[in-house]
């Protein structure tokens, strides 16, 4: 759906984006991750035809942003960092305006506007002036504006910035609900957000691509192994933590077992696997065969936070050298 090939964007004195390439398949949610000033917004602006690339090819839905910008714009819904609202307009009026900008046929406008209002839960404020909207509602109107023409691609620049925790959850849910029909690129500098909403991550730092992969793969790649939290319960009578531990260590592929907590007849461990081994199934069998109850078995994800710090830290000297 989206093809970025060697994209470079240079401003007068600085290089905002430096030779980035990535592809996004249809229907994916991609998180665009990076610290402030990494070039996220610039990349998104190039994707949405707001800025032309200095070098490199960018295609959306098979159309080049430089050669066929109108076709690209037709297929893209864009929520900029600050939602582009007109304070003197009412929500419905605004959406009607956007609908005509996006060339929605007149006969469909009403239905599309109602749909957008419903999907973004704007029913309560539909007749309010936009200057009266709270931050959360402004963001949602911005989202409604972006999805109104049912675009193939949604580009969301920090959709949850400045929202309160409840609104953040709602917005994430909303984005997840939109995922089926749209390809979504969302930028953020909040790591858990990517973990929770995105299937694929693109990490950039100082204009350079640091990593692109699925969240799971990134986790695995960095650690090279799997970590699993296990909780075991004795079926009858108390449980000997040492015995459980011994049993777990015997499971093929396990490299390390850490005791986490223990109780009367239950204890929990964190088990790490050897490089490239999957141990969950084996472990479950081992526990059950030993006559215990397996009450919890959960992969412990390497938090993106760690990944991110690791990646950006290791790239830093190279990036600094390249800038000169």
């Amino acid at each position: 759906m989206i093809k970025v090939d060697g994209l470079t964007k240079r401003y007068a004195r600085t290089v905002a984006v430096d030779d980035i390439s990535f592809e996004v398949e249809k229907g994916r949610i991609v998180g665009f991750l990076g610290p402030n000033g990494a070039g996220k917004t610039t990349t998104m602006r190039v994707l949405t035809c707001f800025l032309p690339p200095t070098r490199g090819g960018v295609e959306v839905g098979g159309f080049d942003v430089l050669k066929q910008p109108l076709e690209v714009k037709r297929r893209i819904g864009y929520l900029p960092e600050t939602p582009p609202l007109y304070p003197e307009m009412e929500v419905t009026e605004y959406l009607n305006f956007v609908a005509s900008l996006k060339r929605i046929p007149k006969a469909e406008t009403r239905q599309r506007v109602d749909q957008a209002i419903e999907r973004c839960s704007l029913g309560e404020v539909r007749n309010l002036l936009q200057s009266k909207l709270s931050k959360g509602y402004r963001q949602r109107v911005g989202l409604a504006q972006a999805i109104i023409h049912n675009p193939d691609v949604l580009v969301l620049d920090e959709p949850t910035a400045g929202l309160d925790p409840k609104q953040i959850l709602e917005t994430r849910q909303l984005i997840k609900n939109l995922a089926g029909d749209h390809t979504i690129i969302l930028s953020t500098h909040i790591l858990p957000e990517v973990e929770q909403t995105c299937e694929q991550v693109i990490i950039i730092n100082k204009g350079k691509l640091v990593a692109k992969d699925t969240v799971d793969n990134l986790t695995r790649r960095l650690r090279g192994s799997e970590a699993v939290a296990v909780e075991v319960e004795g079926r009858d009578g108390p449980l000997d933590a040492g015995e459980v531990r011994q049993r777990l260590e015997q499971v093929p592929g396990v490299s390390r077992v850490l005791a986490k907590a223990g109780g009367q007849n239950r204890c929990s461990f964190e088990v790490e696997s050897l490089q490239g081994r999957s141990i969950r199934a084996e472990m479950a069998r081992a526990v059950v065969e030993a006559g215990w109850n397996l009450t919890e078995l959960r992969p412990v994800a390497f938090s993106l936070e760690e990944i991110f710090l690791q990646l950006t830290a290791s790239e830093e000297p190279a990036a600094a050298g390249g800038e000169k």
Binding site: R45, T48, C49, F50, L70, E71, K73, R74, I76, Y78, P80, E81, T82, P84, L85, Y86, P87, V98, L101, K102, R103, Q145
Partner: peptide, 14 residues
């Protein structure tokens, strides 16, 4: 100033 220019310039409008 308000950023609405981004809406205009990323819409399929000449």
């Amino acid at each position: 100033r308000s950023g609405t220019i981004e809406l205009l310039m990323t819409s399929p409008v000449r």
